[in-house]
């Protein structure tokens, strides 16, 4: 057996201390050890972006991250962005504009979009597309995702935010 190591990290505002194998991926730790299955795994080589979470507020590929690398850090997953009945600004806009179909890429797409809103710089649609280009979606053709992010960003920049997520949105 591989020797386990202790880690302590914050996930969606709660602190967790666990002993885990150093090789354990952050995705598996979140999904299987903490039961936070909203973070999805699409490719396990950092291309599709489905597993994107916020690590200390910055987007990160949870599939390319070992859980031990998250020791002492702050992770936000989709479960920490809003909840049913109290959706975040971005979640609301995604729903309004039909920016999700199967919903599998959505948690990662939301994490990247949160980072866009956090950066709080005005972006053209082309720049939004570029900013989202690390997240693949096979259902929507991106049209409605761009509209949702664009509208959320304008509201954020216009100060009309209604969101409730810890970092953005």
């Amino acid at each position: 057996m591989i020797r386990k190591r202790p880690i302590t990290l914050t996930v969606n505002g709660s602190t967790y201390a666990r002993d885990i194998e150093p090789r354990r991926l952050l995705t598996d730790f979140l999904r299987e050890d903490l039961g936070l299955t909203g973070t999805h795994v699409g490719c396990e080589h950092g291309v599709c972006g489905a597993c994107t979470v916020l690590l200390d507020g910055n987007s990160a590929r949870a599939c390319l991250c070992l859980a031990v690398q998250a020791d002492g850090r702050d992770v936000t997953t989709v479960e920490g962005m809003g909840e049913i009945g109290a959706l975040s600004l971005l979640q609301e806009k995604f729903r309004k504009h039909h920016a999700l179909q199967c919903g599998f890429c959505t948690p990662g797409m939301l994490a990247t979009a949160h980072e866009i809103l956090n950066d709080a710089a005005p972006l053209t649609d082309a720049e939004i597309r570029e900013a989202l280009s690390g997240n693949l979606c096979r259902c929507t053709g991106y049209e409605h995702i761009v509209r949702a992010v664009s509208e959320a960003l304008s509201e954020r920049l216009g100060g009309a935010a209604t969101g409730s997520a810890p970092n953005a949105g």
């Binding site: 909203g38 479960e79 959706l87 309004k96 039909h98 999700l100 959505t106 948690p107």
Partner: peptide, 18 residues
């Protein structure tokens, strides 16, 4: 507006691997 969206937007969907 889609009825499936709230669960999928909040990580509360249930895919097989979940």
């Amino acid at each position: 507006q889609r009825l499936e969206d709230p669960r999928l937007l909040t990580g509360a969907g249930g895919f097989v691997d979940d």
